[in-house]
Every structure is written in C-alpha cells, then in structure tokens.
C-alpha cells in the first residue's frame, strides 16, 4: 500500500530534485565553431559560482531576506493575535470571524495579487483615493514600499489559514487548566500569557516554519505586479531569476543552481529556526 505513493513521490518529488542537483553541475556548451550538437560538460560548481558571482542574483537574494524579515514576523504575530482574540472570552461571534478571516485562503495567489494590484493604483483604489482626499498621498508600488505591498498580499492570503492552525491548538488545551487558573485568581491577560501562549508554542513554531518556506518561494506576486511598476525587475526574486534563466535565457543549468541555492537557504533557515527554539525551549520550559 506504500508502493503507489512511493512511486509517485519518487517520480514527481525525488526525481526532479535529483535532476536539478545533477543539472546544476553541468553546462551545455556549443562544440567547435557552433556546428554540431551542443555537448554537456561537467563543470562541478561553476554554475553556483556564476549564480553567486552575478550581482543581480545576489541582490535578489538580499531582497528575499529583507522580504522574509518583514513577512515572517508580521505573519506570525498577526496569526497568533487573531487566534487569541477569537479564542478570548470577550469575542462575540467567534465562528463568523473565523470564516471571514479564512476566506482569502481560497483566493488563488495570482488573483489576490491582481486584486491588490488594483487597490495599489490611485485610479482604482478607494483607499488611496480616500487617503489622498485628506492629504495623504501614498504609492505602495514605489521602490521604497513595494516589499511591504507584496508582504501585505501574502499576509492577506495566508493569515487566516495560519490562524486556523493556532485556534485548533488553543481548542485542544484542557479546560481544567483555565478553571484552575481562574480559581487562583488569574486574569484573562495572564491566562493568555502564562497558559495559552506556552501551550500553543509547537503550533507557533510550525506556522513559522511554513511561513519561512512559503516566503522563500516568492514568485507569483512580483510577477503579477510587475507591469504596474518599474520597481520590480525581471529577476526581482531568485525564483523569478531561475524561471527566466530557464525559459527565456535558455540556461536551465544556471537556473537549476539558483533553485538549489534557494532550497538550501530554506532548509538552513527552517532548521536554524528549529534549533534556536529547541534550545530556548530547554531553558524556558
């Protein structure tokens, strides 16, 4: 019974990864004077050197890290905050809020980027028009704020999903704990800080790791917003760069190296983060 999944997993997960790693170690060179079939040459880490020696790729990596620095804390704090608010005793209609916050998860990232694109240009955006009428002129698509504009789209789409994971964890806390705390005279505030947050910590860690992985894949939003602004170049993120290398520059080997670099970065950050929280965990709890 394992076999069908294992075969599919090997074909559509493992094989592409192996192929990418293998591809990243070769280079296609035209033989002789350009006549005859181009041949594959083993170049070891040359493609990686080329990628890391390319200033615009390094720039896109830096941009990605800056984006992650904005997006990950923003997402985690929002998701935790919304989950705690909905779970708090003061919330009215928690079920309705839960559904409303989760709705954007069903809107494809491409459509979300298209919609926010309209909300980011003054001609169609009621928000920008409203702000402008009271004297505040914003341009979310300018070079300075474009990363925040993209972060907002990702936050809008996934905050509700992450919140749902956290609410489920909050619901799993045995209610005796709350009763005991209340008998001891704990306020709602201290219950939140001393009981709820420490107990949902594993879920917060999970949400953080998922957000890190998702963040490093940044591709769709800049691709869709690009026609609207000059602040986004064709190799704005490493994934866009890899896509372009592969399909418009005809250099799949370099693209493979770029993709592998992004994946390694993802692993490094995920595991780095996990180690960090685990070490902290030993001390604190």
């Amino acid at each position: 019974m394992v076999v069908p999944f294992a075969v599919m997993f090997a074909a559509f997960f493992i094989a592409p990864i192996v192929y990418a790693i293998n591809d990243s170690l070769f280079s296609t060179k035209a033989s002789g004077l350009g006549f005859g079939a181009p041949e594959k040459v083993f170049v070891l880490f040359d493609n990686y050197g080329a990628a890391l020696g390319n200033p615009s790729f390094i720039e896109s990596l830096g941009r990605l890290l800056a984006f992650a620095a904005i997006e990950v804390p923003l997402m985690v704090v929002t998701a935790v905050g919304l989950a705690l608010l909905i779970d708090s005793a003061a919330a009215r209609f928690p079920r309705i809020f839960r559904v409303v916050f989760f709705i954007p998860y069903g809107v494809p990232g491409v459509i979300a980027a298209l919609l926010w694109g309209f909300l980011y240009i003054p001609a169609t955006s009621p928000i920008l028009q409203g702000l402008s009428s009271i004297g505040i002129d914003l341009n979310p698509l300018s070079t300075d704020s474009i990363l925040f504009a993209i972060a907002n789209i990702a936050l809008w789409g996934f905050a509700g999903y992450n919140m749902l994971i956290l609410i489920a964890a909050l619901n799993a806390i045995p209610s005796e704990l709350f009763e005991a705390a209340k008998i001891d005279g704990a306020s709602e505030w201290s219950i939140t800080w001393r009981i709820k947050l420490p107990l949902v910590r594993p879920s917060v860690v999970l949400v953080t790791v998922f957000t890190i992985i998702g963040t490093l894949q940044l591709f769709v939003e800049p691709l869709v917003l690009r026609p609207l602004t000059t602040a986004i170049s064709s190799d704005y993120t490493p994934n866009l760069a890899a896509y372009n290398q592969s399909f418009s520059q005809g250099n799949p080997n370099l693209a493979a190296a770029m993709a592998v670099i992004v994946a390694l970065l993802g692993f490094a950050f995920s595991f780095g983060f996990l180690r960090l929280v685990n070490r902290k965990g030993d001390r604190a709890w």
Binding site: F9, F12, F13, A15, P16, I17, Y19, A20, D23, V209, I213, L216, Q217, F219, N239, A242, Y243, S246, P252, A255, A256, A259, V260, V262, A263, G266, F267, S270
Partner: peptide, 19 residues
C-alpha cells in the same frame, strides 16, 4: 516524506518540466 513538505514547489516545478 516529511522533508518533502519543506521543499519549495519552485525547486520541483522547473526540473519537472524537463523530465
């Protein structure tokens, strides 16, 4: 399989095209 959850989809999609 769990490791598979952590692999970015973009890393899979491009090589998958060539395969």
């Amino acid at each position: 399989v769990l490791g598979g959850v952590l692999v970015p989809a973009t890393v899979i999609a491009l090589p998958l095209y060539f395969l």
